[in-house]
Simulated scan of single mutants.
Amino acid sequence: MRRAFEFQFFSSRHVPTLKVLSASINDFRYDRHAHTEYAFGVTLAGRQDFFSAGTYHRNPPGSVIFFNPEQPHDGESGGDHRLDYVMTYVSPETLAPLFAAAAGHQHAGRLSSPQTLITDPVLRDAIVALTRLVRENVGSRIDQEHLLQQIATRMVQRAGRYQRMAPASTRPDVLLTRACDYVRAHLEEELSLERISAAANLSRYHFLRLFRRQFGMTPHQYVISCRIDAARGALEQGATPGEVALRYGFADHSHFNRRFKRIHGVTPFQYQQSLAH
């Protein structure tokens, strides 16, 4: 009998920050979370339903999913059929020179796209080809870099926009950014609503209201997401799951396992093992 969900992670041996997920799910729902990387995905079969950017989306086969860094989202299989999809995760630092080259400006390395669902056969085929190279460990570094350049170029050509400098921000945006920066700087310490809202110079009431409206998730969900994201990086560097659980404030190894699996579909040990092969 086929399992209700299957997740496989792969790490590129040529591009250090490039990782790939191959997933097949029937009965699994991701907790709402965000990644520090850019994420590009393609639905291969079934339908992927998810919430992001203030909207619920239904992603049919052949469509591309795109998440900017720090863009909260969840996800699950929609309809009656099994969902099969692939995702690629790439750090902003890796993509910055590719975006700049595509835009024709050396300072145009930061791209932000308002589009979450994209219908684009060229982009789709490049993502699928890149995931195949990483999953099967075939081709050379320049092959993977070429496909990444194709993806970056296509995103710049589409509705994406690059930022030569930090855009003007409203006061709530600035204050919430301070709160997020505070969280990421203190992940190994005790965090509370009082401390986080104080970092944003907001009352707890106004902080909770603004944060939920801006990010579509609670501060608690954001803290868990950030800790799991940091834990993932530590696992990739060779730290043991037990060490990571203790470092990032999880009650015990079992609690860490549950939280990690609800965002990545596998346990910390399984994630670490998958990248080691």
Results as ranks from 00 to 15, higher is better:
9 F>E: 03
9 F>M: 11
10 F>Q: 02
10 F>R: 04
11 S>Y: 02
12 S>R: 10
12 S>A: 10
13 R>G: 13
15 V>L: 04
15 V>P: 04
16 P>Y: 04
16 P>W: 09
16 P>V: 08
16 P>Q: 07
17 T>P: 10
17 T>L: 02
18 L>M: 09
19 K>G: 10
19 K>S: 15
20 V>R: 11
21 L>K: 09
22 S>Y: 12
23 A>V: 09
24 S>R: 15
24 S>I: 09
26 N>T: 15
27 D>C: 02
28 F>S: 01
29 R>F: 07
31 D>G: 02
32 R>L: 09
33 H>G: 06
34 A>N: 11
34 A>S: 13
34 A>C: 15
35 H>L: 10
37 E>Q: 14
38 Y>L: 14
38 Y>I: 12
39 A>P: 01
39 A>T: 13
39 A>K: 09
40 F>R: 06
41 G>C: 06
42 V>A: 08
42 V>H: 05
44 L>Y: 01
44 L>V: 13
45 A>L: 10
45 A>C: 10
45 A>R: 15
47 R>W: 00
49 D>P: 01
50 F>G: 05
50 F>L: 15
50 F>E: 02
50 F>R: 02
50 F>K: 06
50 F>I: 03
51 F>N: 05
51 F>A: 01
52 S>N: 05
52 S>G: 13
53 A>P: 03
54 G>E: 05
56 Y>T: 14
58 R>P: 09
59 N>L: 15
59 N>Q: 15
59 N>D: 08
60 P>F: 03
61 P>T: 07
61 P>I: 08
62 G>P: 08
62 G>D: 06
63 S>P: 01
64 V>A: 11
64 V>L: 14
64 V>K: 13
66 F>P: 01
66 F>Q: 03
67 F>L: 15
69 P>L: 06
69 P>H: 05
69 P>F: 06
70 E>T: 13
70 E>C: 09
71 Q>H: 03
75 G>E: 05
76 E>L: 11
77 S>F: 00
77 S>P: 02
77 S>D: 01
77 S>E: 07
77 S>Y: 00
79 G>R: 00
82 R>F: 01
82 R>Q: 10
83 L>C: 01
83 L>T: 00
83 L>V: 00
84 D>T: 01
85 Y>L: 10
86 V>D: 02
86 V>M: 01
87 M>Y: 01
87 M>Q: 01
88 T>K: 04
88 T>P: 04
89 Y>S: 12
89 Y>P: 08
91 S>M: 00
93 E>M: 12
97 P>C: 11
98 L>P: 09
98 L>N: 07
98 L>I: 11
99 F>H: 14
100 A>I: 10
100 A>Y: 11
101 A>K: 14
101 A>Q: 14
102 A>T: 11
103 A>L: 12
104 G>C: 06
106 Q>I: 08
108 A>S: 10
109 G>M: 13
109 G>K: 07
112 S>V: 15
113 S>D: 12
115 Q>V: 08
116 T>P: 03
116 T>G: 09
116 T>H: 12
118 I>H: 04
119 T>N: 09
122 V>A: 15
122 V>R: 14
124 R>W: 07
126 A>G: 06
127 I>S: 10
128 V>F: 06
